[in-house]
Design a protein around this nucleic acid. Structure first.
Lengths: 135, 135, 135, 135
DNA sequence: GTGGTCTAGACCACC
DNA sequence: GTGGTCTAGACCACG
């Protein structure tokens, strides 16, 4: 569980924790059912307040990414979102549009952009496969 | 100059203005040398505080995207991309990775994700083409 | 906006605030688009910490009950849940089952229970109608 | 003695045990004078700590629902409802109101809500009848 | 040991 | 003025 914080980025610390844990899960570094580090030790490791980690975990829980059992710790949830399909696609499209606008702004042509997407996607799938050698 | 604000997104209003103007320039809606609407009418059109628009313009000027001549309005600066290609690609990859992680957690499979990206990209290119028929 | 807190009930204070606001909305006391009291004054009125009210508002926001615009306050959201219908019905059934078990336990016969439900439902609809005389 | 635990609900485990035993008694699954499973086997069956079951039984004894004779096990107490009818109805109404508020926020219209209540009630009576065929 | 709640007080970003 | 974040330290419930 390696998390790197950037205190100068302006992005809230608890959100950095959220995003990095989600990213670890998406790339297979953490798998459904696996335990997350407890709040107190993690807060000490990251040199931040316990409440800040707790806030991150609470956010992850109500996004349905983890499940936390008071007194017993948190585990990665089985992945299935309770949101309507249309809402999920809409949320994803906003993220995609942001990337497309960014590409235009950085003068990366559409063809190269698409190829980049395919390449990054392949990287993620590779990582996921690597961490499930038992299948 | 069509700008759509989302007051619910948590993203600062002035940054939404900044990003949408940058995106309008990137996508050809605004071209180098063209002038931007003045602060007062734009703030009335968007129904936001003049200070907010002023802050957005200041930020754009800071980034070298526009040039403001006090008393004479603002124009789009000559296009330049001082960043090295590799830096730009790295920035873009962060945006792409965010979308991929999001897709995983929203239960959108890779194939559908790719297809969505292609679709949004096509839509975006269509809009770009529409707004630059003179080229 | 009358909220009554019971500090001895064991129910978290912030949840008491959440439930009473949701109840006020459901019964028509607060209508879509209406403003909620600001966090600071409400916390003073209730004699609790600002963070506790903030936590309640955050919870209401991510249940989609209110919308909050940083720097401008919170308003009651237009009501439409992004959850799948099946999930919504399941959540509701848990609440209903709790009431049914309670009725059995309190030795209230089914017929009387049903009649009670109809009566309370009518009361709520009445209150809603009263607060929308303009329709 | 079938008890189903939900470790994700946030509701304390020992309270889930308490409520399900109370509900089993209320619905006829357990009758006055009948004995309950002892703590040790029940804790093994539910895969929870013995202390948790013990706490549940202590709570039940406190509420007068069961009677425990140290060294001899626990039996269901003779049924009694010391609360006045009006108090019981008031308690029940709070539970009902909670369900109605929930229905409003989950966008379930009153008609569908009533129909759901009738359906769940029928299911519950069915279960009750099944477990008391001897009456 | 775990997570949850609440308080108190600080600083910041936005409008 | 508004809400958002973070810290620090306290107490409690649960297993």
């Amino acid at each position: 569980m390696f998390i790197e914080l950037n205190f100068r980025s302006g992005k809230p610390v608890y959100l950095q924790v959220v995003d990095q844990i989600k990213s670890a899960i998406a790339s297979g570094g953490l798998r459904a059912g696996e335990s997350l580090p407890s709040i107190r030790p993690l807060s000490e490791q990251l040199r931040i307040n316990r409440n800040t980690v707790a806030k991150a975990y609470a956010e992850l829980e109500n996004q349905g990414v983890i499940e936390t059992m008071p007194g017993k710790g948190s585990v990665v949830a089985a992945n299935h979102s309770p949101l309507k399909k249309e809402v999920r696609v809409k949320m994803l499209c906003e993220e995609i549009d942001a990337a497309i606008v960014q590409a235009h702004h950085l003068q990366v042509p559409p063809a190269e952009f698409l190829s980049l997407v395919e390449q990054r996607l392949a990287t993620f799938q590779q990582k996921t496969a690597d961490s499930t050698p038992q299948s």
